[in-house]
Design a protein around this nucleic acid. Structure first.
Lengths: 224, 224
DNA sequence: GTCATAATTTTGATTAATCAAAGTAATGCC
DNA sequence: GGCATTACTTTGATTAATCAAAATTATGAC
């Protein structure tokens, strides 16, 4: 006889959080600090939880290094992202809730909605590809449809984008880009676009703002 | 500064369960045994939980007697019944789930859906009065709309009904009714209706089946 | 009324998730 | 390269919810 133990809401939250961090911040391992921080728990709590999660094969944990999700960990994390984004879509599209309120609501519901109800909801909503914030909804199989890439020049103001690649392979521009931190994987936001001055003002993650000419901005592919 | 402590899902379950038991089975107190039984916990667990619930003013507990809900206990219990029934309605009406599957789904969701989302759902569904099983949905204020009363003769086959009152006040019939257990508050189900024999076959709670003539059946008012 | 049986309460333990605070390791600045 | 700062781990305690099993109290049949 098998007993299927459902992961607790807490486990689901940790895995979703770790998956999202691992997608945003490059590097093999996700460090403890980020995890504790984004879940709002003390570092000690995060450490001890990681040991449990490792014991249950959701991830591997290297002391003072960080964690890496296993295949099943990624799968569960993706499932949670799917749930969250489908629920957000439902709350906005069907019930007319406000953009600003839906995150917390979905955060609660995502742990108690069953697979069956979720798939019905997906059909009811017409298999949406994106949630109300524009984030892609992973498929049932756990695949995130790749977002179309655009150049930084064509992107929306104020939207957090992910740098996908640098088109100019000349070492000068690459060196410049690296120095500024303009590297694939980093998140970037356009603060201002000044047509007269032929510049866009950028904010790279937590770093200070800086500007780029239109010509250079066209060399940077982003998504998101 | 106030901190509003949300009752846990466990507390919500206990109170909903106790409220339902108190409506089905009359008597001032709901006995421990029933509670432990319907929640599937050991008697000891129920006892210790009742002490906590009493400390938090959800009910009053008399040792070896049972418990009675306070006003706030009733209110929370009603709120849970409302949630449950509205969710069941949504699952059937909107998502097309099967009658048989919805109970467990709703049982989970009722603890994580917010007041706001619930009221939106209510509007979306057109303020339904009954869930798919025909049970009345309490109002937002926690009032259960009284079900119309019918005579036992006019009631549906196989539906569990609550005995509301006995019309014939003659002591003979009352004595007979009492002996059979046909008393207000008891739950009764019509097993069979036999027009030729002029009888209906009844099942009273856990007792054995018995029959009643059409004429007598008309003297018993039921609801539900 | 007296026991056997049933109902309830007590007691002692367990598990998951958390925190505070103390201890240890790594990073990085001059 | 040494020491301050930051990051992480350990330890010991707490809380809610639960069980098993022992102890107690009611109930009911005779």
């Amino acid at each position: 006889m098998f007993i299927i133990v459902m992961p607790s809401a807490t486990v689901e939250n940790y895995l979703k959080c770790i998956l999202m961090l691992s997608m945003e911040c490059k590097g093999a391992e996700v460090p403890m600090g980020l995890i504790a921080n984004s879940l709002g728990v003390t570092p000690g709590t995060a450490t001890s939880m990681m040991k449990n999660l490792q014991r249950e094969k959701w991830l591997t944990y290297k002391s003072r290094k960080g964690v890496t999700l296993t295949a099943s960990g990624k799968k569960l994390g993706m499932r949670m992202i799917r749930r969250h984004r489908l629920l957000e879509t439902f709350l906005v599209e069907t019930l007319g809730l406000d953009w600003s309120e839906i995150h917390d609501e979905a955060e609660e519901l995502e742990h108690s909605i069953s697979e069956k109800v979720l798939e019905r909801l997906d059909v009811f909503l017409g298999n949406p590809q994106h949630d109300p914030h524009g984030h892609p909804i992973p498929t049932k199989g756990g695949v995130i449809r790749k977002l179309p890439q655009k150049t930084l020049l064509d992107s929306l103001l104020g939207k957090k984008m992910k740098i996908e690649s640098i088109l100019d392979q000349g070492s000068d521009f690459l060196k410049f880009a690296q120095k500024k931190g303009l590297m694939p994987g980093k998140m970037i936001t356009i603060i201002k676009r000044d047509k007269m001055a032929d510049t866009i003002e950028l904010q790279l993650e937590k770093k200070s703002k800086f500007s780029l000419g239109f010509k250079s901005a066209e060399k940077i592919l982003v998504s998101g």
